[in-house]
């Protein structure tokens, strides 16, 4: 059944400069291959890691930043936020409440806000926290914090793969003068921040944190993505020493 192209005919075709696409089966074969490749590429593109649109996260002036803290170190109230970059309610709080808290209480010097990792939702949580810690080395924890939360996707889905985190670092570099992506990438690849992420997570666990987000306002716990009113009341209580 197979009708092998005679060698002589092929040789003649080449000799005449007529070794055209038809020799490969022409449109029926090459067209089929092209269509199939296009379909596969489209399916890969639609399902690529980190392909979702980032959500908008507002950020304030953040004038007094040191590592994972922002605000006056001598502020009367200290809020510690225990959070996991993969936790949807942590993202919800960042979107709905964090900016108001920063504007009303941190920028006015009433509150010192510290972010601590409680990376308990898996590898993506740890890797994202390491990235934030690497950015903190360049005093860019908060911009990286915003970018990481803006890209949050399904847990351990690869949204926070090393490759994507390096991509997000370029977004930070576009916002922060002097941010060195090469230094950031080396830091992330070295795994040097894994220890501090795990230590802070263990410390949080030992302190009684069991879900995220959890906050302490001068030691008093607030659990969940609570609205600004709850923080306003807690800050007032803390200032009055109750």
């Amino acid at each position: 059944m197979s009708q092998r192209q005679p060698f002589e005919a092929t040789k003649t075709a080449i000799g005449r400069g007529r070794y055209t696409l038809n020799q490969w089966g022409g449109l029926p074969v090459l067209g089929s291959v092209a269509v199939a490749l296009a379909v596969v590429i489209a399916m890969v593109w639609v399902n690529r890691p980190g392909g979702g649109e980032p959500v908008a996260i507002q950020s304030g002036a953040r004038t007094q930043v040191s590592g994972r803290t922002q605000g006056d170190p001598k502020a009367p109230v200290k809020i510690v936020e225990y959070s996991d970059f993969q936790c949807p309610f942590c993202q919800k709080w960042v979107i709905e409440t964090a900016h108001a808290l920063e504007q009303e209480f941190v920028e006015s010097g009433q509150v010192l806000l510290e972010y601590r990792y409680f990376a308990f939702l898996g590898e993506g949580s740890k890797k994202a926290a390491e990235a934030a810690e690497c950015a903190a080395d360049q005093n860019a924890f908060w911009p990286m914090h915003d970018v990481i939360y803006s890209h949050q996707g399904a847990e351990n889905s690869g949204v926070y793969s090393a490759g994507n985190l390096k991509k997000y670092a370029r977004e930070v570099a576009a916002k922060v003068d002097g941010f060195d992506t090469g230094k950031f990438n080396s830091c992330l690849d070295s795994g040097s921040k894994r220890q501090i992420v795990e230590t802070l997570t263990q410390q949080a666990s030992a302190a009684g944190v069991s879900s995220t987000p959890t906050f302490t306002v001068n030691g008093q716990a607030i659990v969940g993505a609570q609205p600004i009113d709850v923080f306003r009341a807690a800050i007032e209580r803390a200032k009055s020493g109750k």
């Binding site: 089966g25 029926p28 074969v29 089929s32 291959v33 199939a36 490749l37 379909v39 596969v40 399916m43 890969v44 399902n47 890691p49 590898e123 351990n156 889905s157 690869g158 793969s161």
Partner: peptide, 30 residues
Amino acid sequence: PLLRVWLTVLAGSGVLYSAYLTYLELEVIH
């Protein structure tokens, strides 16, 4: 003959997409 071409092309597409899914399993989803 075109049916046999399509069979190989369809299977080839399956191989390519399976390779991508295997990459996702190993490198992304772990």
